[in-house]
Write a protein that binds this DNA or RNA. Structure first.
Lengths: 239, 239
DNA sequence: CAATGTCGAATGGTTTAACCATTGGCATAG
DNA sequence: CTATGCCAATGGTTAAACCATTCGACATTG
């Protein structure tokens, strides 16, 4: 019947006005807002209050604030970063275990790769091959740290290949957060890295011919195998 | 080689300290932080700066601020709200279309229901049946608005049944945002509501016997059917 | 005694005015 | 022309005061 009475906080009104202007395209990405001392007059408020509004907008990822002369608030292109960050907060605090994450990956990543394989272009394959060569170089130099970094890039890039931002930020959030566990519980070695590299090569081959079914099967096997190993390790350590 | 030099903004340091304390469980949900005038002394900063930090924490969904005597900042239980909100921003600004969301649902929701069906308890089935009866009552009273609300609750509850918070967050974020589109582009009618209700009943039957495969097939068909209809409607309207 | 009204203190919200810190351009010296 | 250093614009921070909301304590009234 009734809505909650709107709370009257001046800075919220300022946030809404600027946010609406950005969403409606009245302020495009790259536009510089006037300096604080001018904005405060326009909104007929104090600098402190205005700055609280700017903090909120910054946190929402709508503006970026630069220092110095010719600094100020600049309208940002809206991206998935705030989603990834808040999802990360949830994961880090919300009783999300490695097992939860692994289960999610096992169920979901096959489908994501399916989509990526279906939509893979020659350019995508080229990009993947470039990453493969970097990974191979790390393998040969026994540089596990950078190998893992490239591995994460690969997963993120495959997310991009879906051409669907929802998949992209889910993939990014999961991998951002799973990586910490990897480093802690599943230290790489020559054999494990080779295994990873082999899977990677197989996936590229499947992507080349847009074989969604094959690509999906490979990744699901890959994820499952690594998750099981990590789980073993964790159980073993806790004994 | 080098990391970006940390920018020196006092309020960011305050945010980090409080955020870390919350994430590490040193501050549990429900805990009240000291009043601003006391916090400012503890952090050795001014009230203005402290308040900017509180704004950021509030926006992150980590604290809630109440007015009046015995008011103040209270640590919140972290939930999916910030994810939902930032996702909504992305969608509203055109970064994510209905098509993107629908594609994601079609690929993912089957897997989620699989898991839910596998883990369904008698209590879960009872809860679903209760929701079913509410939905049926709305159907008979032609109360579409509340029907949709219950429909959303059902999807959220099925997310809960996975016993996996990652699935829960994703499900909630997607459905919160897809719902707006439903109301705008796919007004319910008697026939469509009945169709929805029938699918619901079938899923409950599958859940009762933990038939993951059947439950998954039903939901995937359901999602696909409704997404197609909505897409048709949108394409039709834009002509 | 119970319901109601009133007041005051605690706390967040806002304002003002000043100063500090960073940055980039411009003037000046070499 | 180049390099140095100064200056002004702009965000960051501080301090002190006042306003607005809330809630408990106490008084008033029936």
């Amino acid at each position: 019947m009734f809505k909650k009475a709107k709370q009257s906080r001046v800075f919220q009104d300022v946030v809404e006005q600027i946010q609406d202007a950005i969403i409606n395209g009245k302020l495009s990405p790259g536009t510089k807002l006037p300096p604080e001392r001018e904005l405060k007059d326009r909104f007929n408020t104090s600098r402190g209050t205005l700055r609280e509004a700017l903090r909120v907008l910054e946190q929402k990822g709508l503006i970026e604030i630069k220092l110095g002369v010719s600094g100020g608030a600049i309208v940002k292109r809206i991206d998935a970063e705030p989603v990834v960050e808040s999802l990360a907060l949830l994961i880090r605090s919300g009783g999300v275990s490695l097992e939860h994450l692994a289960e999610f990956r096992i169920k979901i990543e096959g489908r994501l790769v399916e989509l990526a394989a279906t939509r893979a272009t020659k350019k995508d394959v080229k990009k993947l091959e470039a990453l493969f060569n970097q990974a191979k170089a790390c393998y040969e130099k026994n540089d596990w740290e950078n190998f893992l970094k490239i591995d994460e890039k690969v997963h993120t890039y495959i997310g991009t290949m879906t051409r669907n931002p929802v998949f992209q930020f889910v993939q990014k959030s999961v991998h951002d957060n799973i990586h910490r566990y990897y480093e802690e519980y599943l230290p790489m070695n020559k054999q494990r890295t080779l295994e990873n590299l082999t899977d990677f090569e197989k996936i590229i081959d499947a992507m080349k011919v847009n074989d969604a079914k094959a690509a999906s099967a490979i990744i699901m096997d890959h994820v499952k195998r690594f998750s099981d190993k990590m789980q073993e390790k964790i159980n073993g350590n806790s004994k």
